[in-house]
């Protein structure tokens, strides 16, 4: 059992545990902190797959920017576990059962798919995750989607300002 196998299982367990704690914690701020732990675990997976650019972008954009935005909004609204509305227990049970059924179906599909048998994901080598290779493809083949996404950002910024404006 090599170091990469141990790291894979450790990061998977960390991601799953933190994802469950996102749902289980009553305080929204604790939920956000556990979600940041999920993002760190997923970034660890990216590094293990040698996708270093995506690992850094995941940390900067998700854990850095988006989660700080969530934290600011929750702290501005002054939400805590006392004001958290609760669904009744039967609705929660129905949600958990339907999610579990979907999970069972997905797992059984994965186990019975002949295409995926004996395929492995390449770990810790390969150079497509490096910023040098990604940047060359991004600015040659994908330059039009890249420019369109900048327009998307501009419209999202204007939209957020217009929606958030007091009138």
């Amino acid at each position: 059992m090599g170091i990469t196998t141990i790291l894979f299982w450790f990061l998977s367990a960390l991601a799953l545990l933190s994802a469950i704690m996102v749902l289980a914690s009553k305080n929204p701020i604790h939920s956000i902190l556990w979600l940041i732990a999920v993002f760190f675990a997923i970034s660890g997976h990216y590094i293990l797959l040698n996708a270093q650019f995506l690992a850094i972008v995941n940390l900067i954009v998700y854990a850095g920017a988006i989660m700080v935005l969530f934290l600011f909004v929750i702290m501005l609204m002054n939400l805590n576990s006392h004001t958290e509305p609760q669904k009744n227990i039967w609705m929660k049970l129905a949600g958990v059962i339907s999610g579990g059924i979907l999970f069972t179906i997905l797992i059984s599909v994965i186990r019975s798919s002949a295409d995926m048998v004996n395929r492995t994901a390449q770990l810790k080598e390969g150079n497509i995750g490096l910023i040098n290779t990604l940047g060359k493809v991004l600015f040659s083949d994908y330059v039009i989607p890249f420019e369109i996404s900048s327009v998307l950002f501009l419209s999202a910024m204007v939209g957020a300002v217009v929606i958030g404006k007091k009138n």
Partner: peptide, 10 residues
Amino acid sequence: CIGIIGVLTR
């Protein structure tokens, strides 16, 4: 699926 359960139960 954990995400879906969260959407359905919270």
